[in-house]
């Protein structure tokens, strides 16, 4: 399949830059193929920016980066109109969102108003400014980052907003052997410098369309619902998975199946993706939090006790 080849090439291309994180890279591509966005929750210096840039270059797309600060305004993200005295007209200067791959660094450092502006753009894929609708380029893929350990002066994203991210991933520190490779590979130049495009934005759009044609048997869809339903009846959760989460799991399962050279989704896909797709959508109640439970653990437990269709 041509679309599968697209995904393979992008994946291999990224692997030359991001060492030892094949699983995370695969999941990132799954989110891209599913038409979603990713929240990267990681400590500084693990390669988040490099990953986003590499992805953009791999698909020959435009890469933009936003460094969120507390004084950032929504217009700094979406763009705004300026009056051109020479032309005697207002000109619209596009904001950073007009890119194929947008890296939003430390999204929790900006005000909720600015966060909302980005999240609104993510969900609608268009902006209306001054009464005029402007469509974002396709594909439009946001990688937002959060520092999971530093909370001073931050505005943590509310769970209802987190729901808009298809997946929450973490790169984490590389394994020692991989880190040695990183050291030597960047001795002269950064591998990113030699990265070439292996696909086009049109290929990515085609991939996203192909994902929609992957078959999801009714039993697999029911399996998704069983898991989601279990979160809604779990007494430890104050907030459970919404239908948006079910849809996200559905779509990412299709994407994962396609990237595994299958035309049908399996329960295995659901099991593998339930954690990254659903964990950031639930909120534990106070008692559960103080008992030491965490969202990933709860999702994993639910998956481990939900029978799979056979």
């Amino acid at each position: 399949m041509e679309t599968l080849g697209t995904a393979r090439r992008i994946e291999e291309n990224l692997a030359t830059v991001i060492r030892g994180k094949a699983g995370t890279v695969r999941r990132l591509l799954v989110a891209l193929a599913a038409g979603g966005h990713v929240l990267l929750e990681d400590v500084p210096g693990t390669g988040k920016t490099t990953l986003a840039k590499s992805l953009a270059r791999s698909i020959d797309g435009e890469f933009r980066r936003i460094q969120f600060t507390p004084d950032l305004l929504p217009a700094d993200i979406t763009g705004s109109s300026y009056y051109n005295a020479k032309e005697a007209a207002f000109e619209f200067h596009e904001g950073p969102v007009f890119a194929n791959v947008l890296l939003g660094d430390e999204i929790n450092r900006t005000s909720p108003r600015t966060q909302s502006a980005l999240l609104e753009v993510m969900s609608e894929n268009q902006i209306t400014i001054d009464g005029r609708r402007r469509t974002l380029p396709e594909p439009f893929f946001v990688i937002a980052t959060q520092n999971p350990i530093e909370f001073h002066g931050t505005y943590p994203l509310p769970e209802a907003q987190l729901d808009r991210f298809t997946m929450r991933l973490a790169l984490g520190y590389p394994a020692p052997a991989d880190e040695i490779d990183i050291l030597y590979s960047q001795n002269d130049t950064h591998p990113y410098e030699g990265l070439a495009a292996v696909a086009t934005c049109a290929d990515v759009r085609a991939l996203q369309e192909a994902v929609k044609r992957v078959r999801v048997d009714r039993s697999v869809a029911e399996y998704i619902l069983h898991i989601v339903d279990a979160t809604r009846s779990d007494p430890r959760l104050a907030l459970s998975v919404s239908p948006r989460g079910s849809l996200a799991l559905y779509r990412t399962a299709q994407a994962a199946a396609l990237l595994s050279s299958r035309t049908y989704a399996l329960p295995e896909d659901i099991r593998d993706l339930a954690g990254p797709v659903l964990a950031h959508r639930i909120m534990l109640d106070t008692k559960a939090r103080y008992a030491g439970a965490d969202a990933q653990g709860v999702i994993a437990e639910i998956v481990d006790r939900t029978p799979v269709p056979r």
């Binding site: 048997d217 009714r218 029911e222 029978p307 269709p309 056979r310």
Partner: peptide, 9 residues
């Protein structure tokens, strides 16, 4: 039902 996932289609 348990092994075949009879709760499923």
């Amino acid at each position: 039902a348990a092994t075949m996932g009879r709760a499923y289609s």
